[in-house]
């Protein structure tokens, strides 16, 4: 399947790139990736996306962006790209479905995935008390005690969501203050079911073997290293995200954090014709609205690139015709 422009990813960056590219007449193809809609589909209220006076739901916002992109003429395919060849023209992509795609220009908006603590006990209890998705697994903790690990907006949002279900929510953060927005912090600190344990990290997750399940966590004080155990039925990990770039390894340069490198004030990567937008390339802001803005930039830059390719081809043809 050949297209002028293929967009990888279906978060705010991908859909906005699709809207702009479709309106520019590029008839883009968008491959959704594994989780159509991206990170926003597992959030609850979105209060900071401009244009909505009342809180909106993350999944609803993504559906709206998708409908808008489709209405403008974006073709949408549910597939996950598992292999790319960026050294050849057109670029060649292979999907999890087995389908092959080729394109002259590519916009990478594959976003970021939840980070884990990388403890052996965390892997052992994943799905048995350890989770990275409160909206998926909160259901199982009605009237129970849960621990949320992290100090950013996601951690606070998950803690507040879980407080609506669980009996008690303990937020464990390795510093003495939160990174989350002030309004979120105020809600957290005022909530009767929420307790914060400062300056602590998870040393180990403990539980039973049969049936497999979490019963507690061992906390290590980040100041003096003292350890203590607290009881909990679940542990929700919300320590941030890492960019989804594995498939481009060795073909596109990244920075130390693994984010795709882009030119200053641009979405252009080191490979001409390949652009990157949103959380896959942004280690600074990582907001829905900044991702959307970068998606717009990527589409405009891809359009310019495709025009220059067409002009080169025309010039080449004219030269060979006159030779």
């Amino acid at each position: 399947m050949y297209r002028n422009l293929i967009i990888l990813g279906s978060g705010p960056a991908g859909w906005t790139a699709a809207i702009y590219a479709a309106r520019a007449g590029l008839a883009p193809l968008l491959l959704t990736g594994m989780e159509p809609g991206g990170q926003l589909t597992i959030t609850t209220d979105v209060e900071n996306y401009p244009g909505y006076a009342d809180p909106i739901q993350g999944p609803w916002l993504m559906e709206q962006m998708q409908e808008q992109a489709k209405r403008m003429g974006t073709e949408v395919v549910t597939d996950l790209v598992t292999r790319v060849a960026l050294s050849q023209r057109p670029f060649r992509l292979t999907g999890d479905s087995g389908r092959e795609y080729t394109a002259d220009a590519l916009i990478i908006a594959t976003g970021a995935k939840a980070k884990w603590l990388d403890l052996p006990s965390e892997a052992k209890f994943q799905g048995f008390g350890v989770s990275a998705c409160a909206t998926c697994d909160g259901f199982f903790y009605r009237n129970r005690t849960v621990v949320v690990v992290g100090g950013g907006n996601t951690a606070v949002e998950e803690a507040l969501f879980l407080a609506g279900i669980a009996d008690k929510v303990i937020l464990v953060h390795r510093r003495d203050r939160l990174r989350a927005e002030k309004v979120m912090q105020d809600r957290l600190l005022a909530h009767p079911k929420l307790e914060v344990i400062w300056n602590a990290e998870i040393a180990e997750i403990v539980g039973t073997e049969a049936p497999r399940g979490v019963t507690g966590v061992v906390l290590r004080d980040t100041r003096d290293g003292a350890v203590r155990k607290i009881a909990t039925d679940g542990v929700f990990i919300a320590i941030g995200h890492s960019p989804a770039t594995e498939v481009f390894a060795g073909q596109l340069p990244t920075n130390d954090g693994g984010y795709l490198d882009t030119a200053p004030n641009s979405t252009a990567t080191a490979v001409p014709g390949v652009f990157a937008a949103g959380d896959v390339a942004d280690d600074q802001f990582r907001q829905a609205v900044t991702a959307a803005g970068q998606g717009c930039m990527a589409a405009l830059e891809a359009d310019r690139y495709l025009v220059s390719l067409a002009l080169e081809a025309t010039a080449g043809n004219a030269q060979s015709a006159s030779a």
Binding site: E35, P36, I42, P59, C133, T135, C136
Partner: peptide, 10 residues
Amino acid sequence: WATWCRPCIA
């Protein structure tokens, strides 16, 4: 699965 779980829908 559950109706309110987006990864389930995906």
